[in-house]
Write a protein that binds this DNA or RNA. Structure first.
Lengths: 146, 146
DNA sequence: CCCAAATGTAACTATATTGGTTACATTCTG
DNA sequence: CAGAATGTAACCAATATAGTTACATTTGGG
């Protein structure tokens, strides 16, 4: 089961970007994503640990981007909220078999190649690129909603 | 939860490669992988549908590679047994929000980039490469076990 | 020609992950 | 200091995965 945390995280960051420097509350974000505020806070928490957003507690708190959208790469977002590899190794192959004994070492290298490929693909895309595409997609879109 | 089907599939194919043209039974494979024969048969079934192996039913049946190891790319194996994307889109963002309305289209493109990157990374590795690395890893390894 | 052995597959179970929800301690601001 | 927000724990439902049993189907050998 692939998680949707990355998708939600990008959605969240896009909303924060459009809000500029006014802090956005988890409840508002949750409405746009169409989920529960706690789910959003969990994502925000991960993004905050990764230094991509800053959250302010207390009354009139909320979250803002920690950097300009051009300086946030999707690879950082991915690392912040997903586990990394699209497949895992099998637990305990038979050690008294030439294949079973060594296959995991080989597969770990393959796993490394794949993770690197994902990382590089996502490093090419910035949050600003996402905003630009959103703008292009929604050329018909209203400006004055949130 | 990332599945281990790809890892098991590569393990299975390596065993078939080493068996040459003698058919290997799911039970024998299961012993090396250290799992249940049905789990192996499920993987073999997917690999068979992808035309990577041929299975023979009935007494003295079993599975063999459908091609030489050099002509089997790990990208084909991955496609045969895994679902594709390491992340999924979130179900139903709010359509009356400029971001919510268009984010999924943008994310689908990102998803495409990532899937392409995985595909290309795995297309560079053949089953023969895996066999060579197994050999290198297990240079100390016995030849006469299965 | 049948029987043993193998695949293909359905059905069920246990376990883990994910996302949704409630609840609440903590931390701010006005 | 009161209200509002985050951070987080605890729980639940839904789903995916892998393991297991069971069995219909197929096939080759005696």
């Amino acid at each position: 089961m692939a998680s949707s945390r990355f998708a939600v995280a990008v959605h969240v960051l896009a909303l924060l970007a459009r809000a500029g420097d006014v802090p956005v509350k988890s409840g508002e974000i949750a409405r746009s994503v169409n989920t529960n505020p706690v789910v959003i806070r969990r994502i925000l928490c991960a993004l905050s640990r990764a230094r991509l957003v800053v959250a302010q507690r207390g009354a009139s708190g909320g979250a803002q981007l920690a950097r300009t959208p051009a300086r946030i790469k999707l690879s950082e977002v991915y690392r912040a909220v997903e586990c990394g590899s699209p497949f895992s190794l099998h637990p305990a192959p038979l050690r008294r078999c030439a294949v079973g004994r060594n296959i995991c070492a080989v597969l770990e290298r393959v796993q490394g190649e794949v993770e690197g490929a994902i990382e590089r693909a996502l490093a090419k895309i910035s949050l600003q690129d996402v905003l630009d595409e959103l703008q292009a997609c929604g050329a018909q879109g209203a400006k004055r909603d949130r």
